[in-house]
């Protein structure tokens, strides 16, 4: 399963630091570790989602995989090549193969370019296609692929709806025939009816082009629909990673459980029957993470060991979990600690 040749992406122990800032700008203060040792693999044709609350490091992980934010530790292997620390120049030929789609379709499209030029631009930069006309023809074909007519070719982004702009962003990303598409909240700005159209488009394109997706979303319904596997992040770490069916069928990490519980299901009968555990408090800052398990101040199952030791991400059945509840050694230590408290000076 960890065979490099079969994986499109292999990320190991990825760390990202940001210079800590104050309202007066960058200070000499120590940097903040926003991503703390993320390891994941993405097989060809697979969709892996990253979920978690705002600020947990999903986008930072994506940017570091693309080397748009320099990783401060760990390794990123794309399609068998170690690209860790690659410069913009070194990354340029690889940009064809790994594309990103952002949440805000408006912000990511140059308002002064026509749709045809926007879709053709990456091809022009990469020297794909012999002439402008050939690229325009290709742009027309791509517009068709994403379900928009060629009548949009000479329009400008502001003349399109949010869903149409996101389709253009997808056409643009597809123009270079990428192997990996990273989607960072690609439907969060869209109305549900339009969101469904774009999600269906992602599913169709995956089949049509054999794409692999790293899919980032805070919407757990969307993630369930789109993913083969799901990684749940909390405060810069993965806390649970499992197949879609395992994770939604039986969430094991206390945070995953609470996250799923918080999602309101559009069915009053189910909702009235559910018993909700409201999560207390809010996500702590990555700058001042609590000691031990980062989730322990909010965790309903926290034990003494949780505030002392960071639980590593460990294999548990078919999935990986970072929680002392699934860690026998730690459970024994808890007992020892309790016994120590009964008179044995440590």
């Amino acid at each position: 399963m960890n065979d490099v040749a079969t994986n499109i992406l292999d990320v190991s122990d990825l760390c990202v630091d940001y210079a800590s800032t104050t309202s007066f700008g960058v200070t000499g203060a120590p940097s903040v570790r926003a991503v703390k040792g993320i390891s994941l693999t993405l097989q060809r044709g697979e969709t892996l989602s990253l979920v978690g609350e705002s600020g947990c490091g999903k986008s930072t992980t994506a940017m570091a995989i693309l080397q748009l934010t320099p990783p401060s530790g760990g390794r990123v292997v794309f399609d068998g090549r170690d690209i860790t620390g690659f410069s913009h120049r070194q990354m340029r030929p690889l940009r064809r193969e790994m594309q990103i789609i952002y949440q805000d379709p408006f912000g990511s499209l140059n308002p002064r370019m026509t749709i045809a030029d926007l879709i053709a631009e990456p091809m022009a930069i990469q020297g794909v296609g012999r002439s402008g006309n050939e690229r325009r023809a290709k742009a027309a074909e791509l517009l068709d692929t994403v379900g928009m007519g060629t009548r949009f070719l000479d329009r400008y982004p502001h003349q399109l709806s949010g869903g149409q702009r996101q389709r253009v962003a997808i056409a643009r990303a597809l123009s270079l025939r990428p192997k990996l598409l990273i989607c960072d909240e690609p439907v969060s700005a869209l109305d549900v009816s339009v969101q469904a159209q774009v999600l269906n488009l992602f599913s169709d394109l995956k089949e049509q082009f054999g794409l692999s997706y790293l899919f980032i979303s805070h919407d757990l319904g969307v993630v369930r629909h789109m993913s083969d596997r799901v990684a749940v992040m909390y405060l810069g770490r993965i806390v649970e990673i499992a197949t879609r069916d395992d994770l939604y069928g039986e969430p094991l990490h206390p945070y995953t459980r609470i996250l799923l519980d918080a999602v309101a299901v559009p069915d009053p009968q189910i909702e009235r029957a559910r018993d909700h555990v409201l999560l207390q408090g809010e996500v702590p800052s990555v700058a001042t993470p609590p000691p031990g398990c980062p989730f322990h101040p909010r965790c309903p199952s926290a034990m003494p060991v949780c505030s002392r030791e960071i639980p590593p991400l460990r294999l548990h059945g078919n999935r990986q979990i970072a929680c002392h509840l699934y860690d026998e050694a730690a459970a024994n230590k808890t007992i020892e600690a309790a016994m120590d408290g009964n008179g044995n000076p440590n």
Partner: peptide, 14 residues
């Protein structure tokens, strides 16, 4: 609306 429970359709009804 994609849901966290129930059957998963290959395509959403859009």
């Amino acid at each position: 609306v994609p849901k966290i429970v129930g059957p998963i359709a290959h395509r959403l009804e859009s």
